[in-house]
Amino acid sequence: MSEDAAAEHVVELRAVTRAYGSPPTVALNGVDLRIAAGEMLAIVGPSGSGKSTLLNIIGSLDRASAGDTRIAGHEVNRMSDAELSALRAHAIGFVFQQFHLSDGVTALDNVATGLLYTGMPARERRRKAEVALRRVGLGDRLRHHPRQLSGGERQRVAIARAVVGEPSLLLADEPTGSLDTKAGAGVVEILAELNRSGTTVVVITHDQELAERMPRQVRLRDGEIVADERGVAA
């Protein structure tokens, strides 16, 4: 593979192992994974399969014990805490199962928080937040507080917050886990829409049905990749 091709990969893991404690418990064992820019995929596996650990490593929230990790062209293992934080602030967006929105703050300000650590002025953050909220179809809910929104709407606010900084990588941890089927479908549709406009989307889930709607599925079991299937759906 040429260097140019390597640069186009948003995520590139080589023989990544993550072990905790002593005696070590191996959560990930020699995982190789490449995610090209613009891809959309599901990382799927039962609980305890290591998918949360994998998400932490891809999201640069955690470091591998061994192996190489490159995220958005940066070698994570060699970066300081401040550099990793900068990478998260500018290149990675997170969506959580629990949404993690601030209750006392409007949807607009919740989304604007996504740009807080980029040092952008507040007015600029709000302007971009409004654009992001319109993108997820919540243009009429700017001034609503999270309590006044349905579960599906809350998750869309959280997605807007994750993509407001236009990251090269969007990581979604069980994004439909707290939602009913209909709201979940809406959220998946928005993720697909974001993907069509160029964002790389990685969905982590234990839900087979959700995984099968993605163009690529990486199956994880006992800390190892057991299958990497493409082109079934979409």
């Binding site: 490159r70 900068a86 040092g119």
Partner: peptide, 12 residues
């Protein structure tokens, strides 16, 4: 390190 160093995290 390949690629440009990422922009810094900043809090006003």
């Amino acid at each position: 390190r390949p690629g440009a160093a990422p922009a810094r995290s900043r809090l006003r």
